[in-house]
């Protein structure tokens, strides 16, 4: 039996907001196995963003343990967390978060700049280009984000998330800024990553339609996990074929 990639044990997070203490997470216990596509849903204020930040090693829990790949990361220093993010986690954000005035290729290269030991420049370039190529964007390498469509920008961001070959991809509302067709395209890409490369994917969304693409759906409310159910995922590939007549896939 394989060990879980992610293991949360009674995870709690409290904030001090003025005189009030906000209990963002009240005790989350959760295992995620390698190769799962987990969709975490919940309304705003449910604590799903806090959960996502802790899963992404951007924040530390107040109480409880978080094991990532067997390593307890609950109490690491800021710099240690930065290294974990760099090596093990790929982020895909709602707003793409690409650097403007910087080419697609250079955007993909950014995580490699912070890797230790530092890779030589030609190797970095080759790796970044390979990641872009796997996203079908080799011919857009020299384009700036402003010259790319929303879908293309999100694929650049996915290439950036993949470039350091992480075991986990955290996607935070990745389709929030995209139209339906492009959303399906992005979901297909994520599904393919899981199927072909066995990358574990954790997707945060408030849209049940998007959550339906996961193999497992977790619903969060008031800082607690309310439901955790396996799911027969929707196939983005099938939907895309259905949309083909009006699609102009590059």
């Amino acid at each position: 039996m394989t060990s879980p990639l992610i293991s949360l044990q009674d995870l709690k997070k409290r904030y001090q907001l003025g005189d009030n203490t906000v209990h963002a997470l009240r005790g989350a216990t959760l295992d995620i196995m390698p190769g799962e596509f987990v969709a975490i849903t919940g309304p705003s204020g449910s604590g799903k963003s806090t959960l996502m930040h802790i899963l992404g090693c951007l924040d530390r829990p107040t109480e409880g343990r978080y094991l990532l790949g067997g390593q307890d990361v609950s109490n690491l220093s800021r710099d240690q967390l930065a290294d974990i993010r760099n090596r093990q986690i790929g982020f895909v954000f709602q707003g793409f978060n690409l650097l403007p005035r910087t080419t697609a290729l250079e955007n993909v290269e950014v995580p490699l700049l912070y890797s230790r030991p530092l890779m030589p420049a030609p190797e970095r370039r080759a790796k970044a280009l390979a990641a872009l190529t796997s996203m079908g964007l080799a011919d857009r390498a020299d384009h700036h984000p402003s010259q790319l469509s929303g879908g293309q920008q999100q694929r650049v961001a996915i290439a950036r998330a993949l470039v350091n070959e992480p075991s986990l991809i955290l996607a935070d509302e990745p389709t929030g800024n995209l139209d339906t067709r492009t959303s399906i395209e992005v979901m297909r890409t994520l599904q393919e990553l899981r199927e072909k490369r066995s990358i574990t994917i954790v997707l945060i969304t408030h849209e049940p339609d998007i959550a339906a693409y996961g193999t497992r759906v977790i619903s969060v409310r008031d800082g607690l996990i309310r439901s955790d159910t396996p799911n027969q995922p929707r196939s983005a590939t099938d939907e895309q074929i259905a949309l083909e007549p009006i699609a102009d896939v590059a």
């Binding site: 930065a82 993010r85 912070y114």
Partner: peptide, 16 residues
């Protein structure tokens, strides 16, 4: 600020 946050998320240490 946003760019700094992004770089941190992608693995930049404080010294970077």
């Amino acid at each position: 600020t946003r760019e700094i946050g992004l770089r941190m998320a992608l693995g930049a240490r404080a010294a970077d």
